[in-house]
Design a protein around this nucleic acid. Structure first.
Length: 582
RNA sequence: UGGGAUGUCGUCUAACGGCAGGACACGAGAAUUUGGAUCUCGUUAUGGUGGUUCGAAUCCACCCGUCCCAGCCA
């Protein structure tokens, strides 16, 4: 049996409509391990995890998976805790800007580290003392080999390494040298402290790994107090141990490092945290490595870490994704050890699903086509009371003006419509959503370009509200705005960043950037009521998709909307399937 | 070719010796004042070969595929 608390809270996490039993998310292998540990009273029945980002970039949705896992596990278990710890042992790559962004992103996702904020750099003094202890125990030595020489001594995947000539220095000499390293008596890169393990180990990580390097770089927290910095493999287990972390969850590539993780704790004889590895998140049509994301930012291929096309938390936030949708997504994808690539369609589903319930419906015309209702009085303006959500009356309604000159979507008219096209065409009748039936009587074109500039239509006054008293049906319903009353807006149509499912596997991933990942429209017309829309607020533009008021660039005078995700589009599918039908 | 992992529908993930299930995607249909949402139905999977067993995705053997490791990065 699984641990009771664990099971109980798993039920709570998912308790929406269905009965708890059929709704219970399956327990992943990590939660199973924790449940077993709890049952065996391991760690005094404590569950303590940590999220350990390096502040060398912005968090992405892969980190969200880890955050949801670590903070989620803590929340599911009574008394469970999750620390936030910055793994800041490499000052040459790290920056306060990243730390601040990480705070913001974790909070925004809905998680709280309370008073448990830690920095590996806070342990520098203790780490140093532990290193002294290792030296005293004959488990570490100062090595004078250059980086290149160390590499040569390390051997290869198939050949064992050779011992360093400095491997057998006396404890006294090592102590003296290491203290001098700290005191700044040697130049950068001239010496390192190494663990004395086994140069013949088939695991490269055990071939006397470097524990400390000399590096004169100003640390964002400790300043110039140190000129030697500990390595990840040495710092991480000790930090976990010091904080009493029971389950140290990380990604698969650290599997080979676990023997070293365990070695450190064993040799130092301190609290034994357990490292567990899971498969990192990959999503199709994007890249997920900080290295590649940094490249996109540095080379100006995106507007920044928070470009709405980026898979970063800040990018998704600006795009309009809700924290809930990301948490749901992370729960849906599961946790396992198999390398995998999640279909981006699942991410899109999670935000559609969330916004379908909560986002008010409005009308916006992205590519306006002028429509004149010839039999509608010149100076009449009607106001239609329109529901904000067709299936949820509690969301209220709003007034939308209607007049003789309107805009509809260019895509909603075809001069020679194919069979399955239900929208407007010459002589055809359609419904204007929540307004009238109109019939297209004439098409006006630019004499020079042949471009359609205006549609002349008539309306049926008896169809006010959108129903015909004589019972006649129309197949199509179009959205619209009143030309005079609508507001001009800019809309950014975002699409997937890359054209191929796995750009990271290519030699030059930038070759596959999607040139249409951003289409900027500047002449869109939106309902007048949208003027007051707050930055960050989300709407469904009917028949088109979900949109979000941009948090940086939008203003009352010139509103800017980001497309979060399109609606499922059956017509687009038909078009794609039968392109000749046009 | 050393070591460490990992193979279940198109994708992700369950089933822990006893009916291969769910989600997304896809397809068909119903209904529809969003070609949305909703509802109904459906297609598709245990990498391979042997073995153990009344019974194998699950246990054993061999084979095959994929991923990770030779930073003074994390």
């Amino acid at each position: 049996m699984k641990n009771r608390d664990d099971k109980q809270s798993t039920i709570e996490r998912n308790s929406e409509k269905k009965s708890p039993d059929e709704n219970r998310a399956p327990i992943d292998f990590i939660r199973a391990i924790i449940a077993r540990d709890l049952k065996n009273n391991k760690n005094d029945s404590r569950v303590h995890t940590r999220f350990p980002p390096e502040p060398n970039g912005y968090l992405h949705i892969g980190h969200a998976k880890s955050i949801c896992l670590n903070f989620g596990i803590a929340a599911e278990n009574t008394g469970g805790l999750c620390n936030l710890r910055f793994d800041d042992t490499n000052p040459s790559k790290e920056d306060q800007e990243y730390i601040d962004s990480i705070f913001e992103d974790i909070r925004w996702l809905g998680f709280d580290w309370e008073d448990r904020l830690y920095y590996a750099s806070d342990y520098f003094e203790k780490l140093y003392e532990f290193a002294l202890q290792l030296i005293n125990d004959g488990k570490a030595y100062v090595c004078d080999l250059s980086a290149e020489e160390i590499r040569q001594h390390r051997g290869t995947l198939t050949e064992p390494g050779k011992d360093s000539p400095y491997r057998n220095r006396t404890v006294e000499e090592n102590l003296d040298l290491f203290q001098k390293m700290r005191a700044g008596e040697f130049p950068d890169g001239s010496r390192v402290l190494r663990a004395k393990i086994d140069m013949k180990s088939p695991n490269m990580n055990m071939r006397d790994p470097v524990l400390y390097r000399i590096l004169r770089a100003t640390h964002h927290r400790t300043g110039d107090a140190w000129c030697i910095y500990p390595m990840y493999d040495y710092t991480h287990p000790i930090s976990d141990s010091l904080e009493g972390i029971t389950h140290s969850i990380c990604t698969l590539e650290f599997e080979d490092h676990r023997p070293l993780y365990d070695w450190s704790l064993d040799e130092l004889d301190i609290f034994r945290s357990r490292q567990i590895e899971f498969a990192r998140l990959n999503i199709s049509y994007t890249v997920m490595s900080k290295r590649m994301l940094l490249k996109l930012v540095e080379e100006g291929l995106v507007s920044g870490w928070d470009d709405p096309r980026m898979p970063t938390i800040s990018g998704l936030r600006r795009r309009g994704y809700t924290p809930q949708s990301i948490r749901t997504f992370c729960e849906c994808i599961g946790v396992a050890k198999k390398d995998s690539m999640v279909d981006v369609a699942l991410l899109e589903h999670s935000i559609r699903d969330d916004l379908n319930t909560g986002a008010p419906r409005v009308m916006a015309v992205l590519r306006p086509l002028r429509v004149v209702i010839e039999n509608y009085p010149e100076d009449l303006v009607e106001e239609f009371e329109i529901a904000n959500h067709p299936n949820d009356p509690t969301m209220g309604s709003r007034k939308v003006p209607f007049s003789r000159i309107l805009y509809i979507e260019q895509d909603d008219f075809m001069e020679e419509p194919p069979k399955k096209f239900f929208r407007l065409g010459p002589g055809r009748e359609v419904r204007l959503r929540n307004a009238y039936f109109i019939t297209c009587r004439d098409v006006v074109k630019d004499a020079n370009t042949g471009e359609i500039t205006e549609l002349r239509c008539t309306y049926d006054p008896a169809t006010r509200g959108g129903d015909a008293p004589d019972g006649r049906k129309v197949k199509g319903t179009l959205h619209w705005v009143s030309a005079e009353h609508s507001i001009k807006a800019a809309v950014r149509l975002y699409d997937r960043l890359f054209t191929i499912p796995n750009p990271a596997a290519e030699n030059n991933f930038k070759t596959y950037l999607n040139p249409e990942s951003l289409v900027s429209l500047k002449e869109c017309r939106i309902e007048p009521g949208l003027k007051e829309a707050a930055p960050g607020s989300r709407f469904q533009f009917e028949r088109q998709g979900y949109f979000c008021v941009d948090m940086k660039d939008s203003s009352v005078d010139s509103p800017v909307f980001n497309r979060i995700v399109t609606l499922r589009d059956t017509w687009a599918k038909i078009e794609k399937k039968e392109p000749g039908e046009k």
